[in-house]
C-alpha cells in the first residue's frame, strides 16, 4: 500500500503539483517555441519524456556510485550537463539511423533539449530527498520522477498548443498578437495550476 501511495504521490506531484513549466518555470523556451502546432508539440513532448527518463536513470547512477562516494556532490551540475548533452547526441544519432521519420519530425528540437533546463532540473531534483518517504530517491523513484516530469511537461505543452491553435482564430488586439498573448495565456495557466499546490493525497510517513 505504501509503495503504491509512493508511486501515486511522485506521479501526481511531478505532473500536476510541481509541474515543470507551470509551477517551477523551467524549460520555458521550448514551451513557447514549439507550442504553435499540436503535432510538433506532441513530438517535442515525447522527446522530452524520453530524454528525461534516460537522463534521470544515468545521472542517478553517476550521482550514487561516483559523486557521493568520492564526496564531490558539488560537481553535480557540470557532470549532469555533460552526461545529458552526450546522451542527447547519442539519441539523435540513433534516431537518424533507425527512425529517420521521427528524426525529421523532431528536427531542431532534439538538440535543443540538450540545453533544456527542465532536463537538468529533474536530474538535480533526483539527487534530493523524496518528500513522501523522507529518504533519498531510489533508482526506480528517480526514473519514475523523470518520466512523470516529462509527462507533466508534455501536458503543459499540449494544453498550450491546443489553446494557441484556437487563439489563431480569435479576435486579439493587434498589439497582443503572437507571443504576447501566449505569455498572458501561460500566466493564466500557471495561476490555475497553482490550485494543485495544496494537494496532498497521502500524508508522508510520520507527517
Amino acid at each position: 500500500m505504501n509503495n503504491i501511495a509512493n508511486i501515486i504521490s511522485i506521479s501526481i506531484g511531478a505532473v500536476f503539483i510541481n509541474n515543470f513549466i507551470l509551477s517551477k518555470f523551467l524549460g520555458l523556451c521550448p514551451f513557447f517555441g514549439v507550442s504553435k502546432k499540436l503535432s510538433s508539440a506532441t513530438g517535442m513532448g515525447m522527446a522530452v519524456v524520453f530524454v528525461m527518463a534516460i537522463a534521470s536513470s544515468f545521472t542517478w547512477v553517476i550521482n550514487r556510485f561516483i559523486l557521493i562516494p568520492y564526496d564531490v556532490a558539488y560537481l553535480q551540475t557540470i557532470i549532469f550537463i555533460l552526461v545529458i548533452a552526450a546522451l542527447v547526441q547519442l539519441v539523435e544519432m540513433a534516431l537518424q539511423k533507425y527512425s529517420p521519420s521521427l528524426y525529421e519530425a523532431l528536427g531542431i528540437y532534439l538538440p535543443l533539449i540538450t540545453t533544456n533546463c527542465a532536463v537538468l532540473g529533474v536530474a538535480l531534483i533526483n539527487t534530493g530527498v523524496n518528500t513522501f518517504t523522507g529518504e533519498p530517491y531510489t533508482f526506480f523513484e528517480s526514473l519514475l520522477n523523470g518520466v512523470m516530469s516529462g509527462v507533466g511537461f508534455m501536458l503543459a505543452l499540449l494544453l498550450m498548443a491546443g489553446l494557441r491553435e484556437k487563439l489563431e482564430f480569435s479576435n486579439i488586439p493587434k498589439g497582443l498578437e503572437g507571443l504576447p498573448i501566449a505569455f498572458i495565456t501561460a500566466g493564466l495557466m500557471a495561476l490555475s495550476f497553482l490550485g494543485f499546490a495544496g494537494l496532498n493525497f497521502f500524508s508522508p510517513v510520520g507527517g
Binding site: L75, V83, Q96
Partner: peptide
C-alpha cells in the same frame, strides 16, 4: 585530483562513446 580525475574520466568516457557511436550509427 579527485574531481579532476572524475570529471576528466567521465568526459573521456562519454567522448569515446560518442566517437564510437558516430562511426557505428553513421548515416
Amino acid at each position: 585530483l579527485i574531481p579532476l580525475i572524475i570529471v576528466g574520466s567521465i568526459g573521456a568516457f562519454l567522448g569515446l562513446g560518442l566517437g564510437i557511436a558516430s562511426k557505428k550509427l553513421f548515416v
